[in-house]
Amino acid sequence: MRRAAAFADAALRRVLEVIDRRRPITQLNGLLAAGLVDSVLSANRAAGSHDGVAVLRRVRVQAAGGDDRAAEVFGSYSRGHRVHAIACRLELAATGRWQVVALHIG
């Protein structure tokens, strides 16, 4: 789960940076399942820049269903003075790389 935790931290930071328009959306290719890129684009349009940038604060990872090929990730990020929740599910792809297959940004 250490590799999953490292991937989750990097992937969630990248998602938040894309939402804040600090990175191009193309940098999510391969990290997220195909349908999730659309949801990040929606969050990108809805994010207000007047609240400051999003900063990932805490990430926790646990195996999903006792299987080392899937993990549940939950954490928090701050934007200005507010704290928000973020969660995702990771799965180990056939290529041997982790991929975000579900994402919820609160």
Rank of each mutant, 00 (worst) to 15 (best):
M1Q: 13
R2T: 15
R3V: 14
R3A: 15
A4W: 14
F7L: 10
F7G: 08
A8I: 14
A8E: 12
D9S: 14
A10G: 09
A10T: 15
A10Y: 13
A11G: 02
L12D: 08
R13F: 09
R14L: 13
V15N: 05
I19K: 00
I19H: 01
D20L: 07
D20P: 07
R21C: 15
R22M: 05
P24K: 03
P24Y: 03
I25A: 11
T26G: 02
L28W: 00
N29D: 07
N29A: 13
N29Y: 09
G30E: 14
L31K: 00
L32W: 11
A33S: 08
A33R: 07
A34R: 12
A34C: 11
A34G: 09
L36N: 01
V37W: 11
V37Y: 10
D38P: 09
S39V: 13
L41I: 06
S42M: 06
S42C: 05
S42K: 04
A43S: 11
N44M: 14
G48M: 01
S49M: 15
S49K: 11
S49Q: 11
H50S: 13
D51Y: 12
G52E: 02
G52T: 01
A54I: 07
A54T: 05
A54H: 05
V55D: 05
R57Q: 15
R58W: 10
V59E: 02
V59F: 07
V59Y: 05
G66P: 03
G66W: 03
G66I: 03
G66N: 06
G66H: 08
D67I: 12
D67R: 14
D67E: 12
D67M: 11
R69Q: 08
A71V: 10
E72R: 12
V73Q: 01
G75I: 08
Y77E: 07
Y77P: 00
Y77C: 09
S78F: 05
R79Y: 05
R79H: 03
H81R: 11
H81V: 10
H81D: 14
A87M: 06
C88G: 13
C88Q: 09
R89M: 12
L90T: 08
L90E: 04
L90P: 06
L90K: 04
L90Q: 05
E91T: 15
L92I: 06
L92A: 08
A93N: 14
T95V: 02
T95M: 01
G96H: 04
Q99N: 02
Q99P: 00
V100T: 00
A102W: 00
A102G: 10
H104W: 09
H104L: 12
I105A: 03
I105D: 01
I105Q: 03
I105L: 09
G106T: 04
